[in-house]
Design a binder for these strands. Structure first.
Length: 339
DNA sequence: TGTCACGCTAC
RNA sequence: CUUGUAGCGUGACA
């Protein structure tokens, strides 16, 4: 079995940096600056490692992550060529529905392992472009940041006297991302035509249902390696709008809390922000789950802030979840040892 | 440094 | 057997 290192080294020749004065012919296309970064040896190496490490299930073509290295060894040169010539077409995603904790269901969109590999390579580049531009109070899906840090900041706001919170929840956030808004926003710090075109093709790749594909005019697939960073690019617009209004907030994916000093201010913010999100971002605010309330009445990322703003409490929901898990675990191990 | 489990948050 | 992805955390091993 060939090691991952050996494999990618043979996949990508050192010549992927443009050679000066290289004559253009039909067999070699000069990569655009961003495509060169996506297709660089080191970046592809990291991407392949990540996809294999996840050990995820196959997409519509049935190819497993263990089969991917062998497939790439045979087909990567032509795929790479298609990517450079902008003729590559991603496969539609596979639809799998999984239950959510609150009783609902979550539609996953599982790309083929090849597309997960390419998306991962793109995601690593996009993340580089955007990480420093993202708002400091955006905590979800970002390296070096955690839910704990988001909650700690909320606690600090409450301690400083902002004892009211606007708790915003967006409806089916990933599934309703507006493609035009996303692409326009993406162009700001990733101004590369070929790469943007490829990303747009991933957005429009569709979902395979039986034998035909269903269009995806909106949304990013829940299950694509690229989706989290794209989600942050969309909501980056919200972050800087909040900043412009001098509001204190913490956001983790679509879960956003804004800390204000009075109920009145909270109501005002809720109304105007709902309009901004629906008009400008083209997203829907979930009015059932959103609310203006005191921080100690709401749970945020599995925690609730205590009344004095000095302590963090693990939310009741998280406690009961843990308890049932422990019960199940002890019952199961007991059963096994008896049998 | 690197590999492998497990847990939590989010979609 | 079915279930994808990102981030963080704990532990183990070398």
């Amino acid at each position: 079995m060939a090691s991952a290192k050996q494999l990618t080294l043979s996949l990508v020749k050192p010549g992927d940096e443009p050679v000066a004065g290289n004559r253009e012919d039909s067999h070699s296309v000069q990569p655009s600056p961003w495509m060169a970064r996506v297709l660089s040896r080191d970046n592809l190496n990291r991407a392949l490692k990540q996809v294999r490490r996840n050990k995820g299930a196959p997409g519509i073509d049935g190819m497993t992550v263990d089969e991917l290295p062998d497939y790439l060894r045979r087909h990567w040169p032509e795929i790479r060529q298609q990517l450079l010539q902008q003729t590559y077409r991603p496969k539609p995603v596979r639809r799998v529905t999984i239950p959510k904790a609150n009783g609902g269901s979550r539609p996953l969109g599982i790309p083929t392992v090849l597309d997960r590999f390419i998306q991962q390579a793109i995601a690593q580049v996009i993340q580089q472009d955007w990480e420093l531009r993202f708002h400091p109070r955006s905590y979800g899906f970002r390296p070096g940041r955690s839910a704990h840090q988001a909650v700690r900041y909320g606690q600090q706001c409450a301690r400083e006297g902002r004892n009211w919170v606007v708790d915003l929840d967006l409806e089916a956030f990933f599934d309703r991302v507006n493609h035009d808004r996303l692409m326009a926003r993406l162009k700001r710090h990733t101004p590369d035509k070929p790469l943007l075109r490829l990303i747009n093709r991933y957005l429009k790749a569709g979902v395979q249902i039986d034998h035909h594909k269903e269009l995806t005019p909106e949304g990013v697939p829940q299950g694509g390696p690229l989706s989290p960073v794209l989600a942050n690019v969309v909501l980056d617009e919200l972050d800087w709008e909040l900043e412009r209004r001098n509001l204190k907030f913490a956001r983790y994916a679509d879960d956003c809390q804004i800390y204000v000093g009075s109920r009145c201010a909270g109501e005002r913010v809720m109304v105007s922000l709902t309009r901004f999100i629906e008009d400008s971002l083209r997203l829907t605010v979930n009015t059932r789950k959103s609310a203006v309330d005191r921080p100690w009445n709401r749970s945020f990322l599995g925690f609730t802030l205590s009344r004095k703003g000095q302590r963090l409490k693990v939310a009741d929901k998280a406690i009961t979840k843990l308890k049932t898990q422990i019960r199940n675990l002890s019952r199961r191990t007991r059963g096994h040892s008896l049998a």
